[in-house]
Structures are given as C-alpha cells and as structure tokens.
Simulated assay, not measured.
Amino acid sequence: MEFKPCVNICKEWDIVGARQLGREHAKSLGFSTVDQARIATAISELSRNIYLYAETGKICFEVIDQIDRKGLKIVAVDQGPGIQDISQVMQDGYSTSGGLGAGLPGVKRLMDHFEIVSSSKNGTEIETIKWVR
C-alpha cells in the first residue's frame, strides 16, 4: 500500500522535515495543540529510529476520514536490519542507542493505535493512528 505524502529519511535534518509536515497535517485536521505536540514527538521518535538503525526509510501520512471520526495515520517504513526482539524494544527503559529508552513504548502511549511488523528480510513497518477528539 502506498502512502502519500511521504518524507524520505536519509539525513538527520529529514527528521525535522517529517516532524513539521506531521504537525501541519495535525493542525489542518483540527487536532488540539497538545495532540499536535504528541504527534510531532511520535514522528520525531519514529524518524530518529529510521535514521539511527536503518539509515534510510520514510515517514508517510494518510488522513483517515470516516463518518464518525477523523484521524491521522503515520507509517514509518524502512528496509533496515529489522528488530530482532519486538517485545524487548517495547519495554520501558530499553535502549540500544544510550538514550532514555522512551522510544517505541513512548510512541505507543502518545498515539491511539500502534502496530509493528519487522523482519530481517523486509525491515520494519510501524503504523500509528491518532484520532481527533
């Protein structure tokens, strides 16, 4: 499935671009400033993971407009080495980069939906959704 628009993550500066585009989408959809910040933080974390662990990938955005609710879907995709132990990286405090380890568990808490698929052959795809309240 192709998502548009996408921001390619190849260099550290791309993290900023992805974050800004996500915040713009969130604002245009009517998210509160608090939820805009949550979304931007989640995007920062997802794109930083791509940059640190996979080197290249993309952050894609999709507006979800249903009869009863609207939301923003954010998908992080890379062809990196994959995550060997998803349950381990989903534990609070776990870090391989020397960071705080808030990473993916933090993203899961910030968003309303979080799904991760990863393999050494195909890399990692993380799908998140935040619904407008």
Rank of each mutant, 00 (worst) to 15 (best):
G82F: 01
L110A: 10
L21T: 04
G101M: 00
K4D: 06
I67D: 12
T33H: 10
G98P: 06
L46Y: 07
V75F: 03
L110I: 02
S120T: 07
G106A: 01
I43M: 02
L52K: 15
L100D: 05
L52E: 08
I9C: 04
I83M: 04
T41K: 14
S32N: 10
D85H: 15
E62A: 13
S28K: 15
N122V: 01
S119G: 13
I43H: 04
H25L: 14
S87E: 11
E12Q: 14
S47L: 04
N8Y: 11
R19K: 15
A54P: 10
D65T: 13
K108C: 05
G71W: 09
D35H: 10
I129M: 11
Y53S: 09
Q91S: 13
Q36V: 00
S87D: 15
L100Q: 08
Q20L: 09
M90L: 15
V34I: 04
G123I: 13
F3W: 09
P81D: 05
Q66H: 05
S119F: 06
Q36S: 03
G71C: 07
Y51I: 02
S87Y: 04
L110V: 02
K27Y: 11
M1Y: 09
Q84W: 07
S47C: 12
E62G: 08
C6Q: 03
Q36R: 00
T56H: 12
K11M: 05
L110N: 08
L110W: 14
G82Q: 06
V77Q: 14
D112G: 12
G80I: 07
E127G: 02
S28R: 14
G22C: 01
P105I: 03
Q20F: 10
I15D: 00
